Amino acid sequence: MSVPNYTRFLSDCFLQDRERQPALCEDDIYGVYVSWCLLNGQQPGPATSLWAAMDQRGYTKQHRDTGRHEWPGLSLKGPAAVDYILTSQPSLL
């Protein structure tokens, strides 16, 4: 398995629309990332590397009262998003 291409992952899996989309939490983003890696034959890297790649590409995070982070204005797209949603929400099947 190869090292993940974060730019391709972000392009394949997210749409940015700060005006219309609610925020996605770090658990959802990392879950989609793991699904994307598995579907693309890549080894997932640590969450800290993903957050750094998102910061470098201009994805702005906000700190929540719970100590977690969220990224406003992101929505999911693509096969990895579908895989993650169906895996994390089996009641949808």
Rank of each mutant, 00 (worst) to 15 (best):
S35Q: 10
M54C: 02
P90A: 07
L76V: 05
L38S: 07
L15D: 15
C25M: 11
R20D: 15
E70D: 10
G78Y: 08
S35R: 04
T7Q: 13
R8Q: 15
D83R: 14
E70K: 06
W71Q: 00
L74C: 03
V32C: 05
N40E: 10
L93Q: 06
R57Q: 14
Y59E: 02
D55T: 09
L10G: 00
C13H: 08
V82Q: 10
F14S: 04
P46C: 01
Q62H: 10
R57N: 12
G78F: 05
D12R: 07
E26Q: 12
S49H: 11
Q89E: 12
Y84N: 08
R8Y: 06
I85H: 07
P72H: 03
P44D: 05
D65N: 11
P90S: 09
E26S: 09
H63F: 12
P4S: 01
D17Y: 12
A81T: 11
L50S: 00
S91M: 08
T87G: 10
S88A: 15
G41R: 11
G78Q: 04
Q21Y: 15
P72M: 02
E19V: 13
T60H: 07
T60P: 00
L38R: 11
K61Y: 12
C37R: 01
L39T: 04
Y84L: 05
W36C: 00
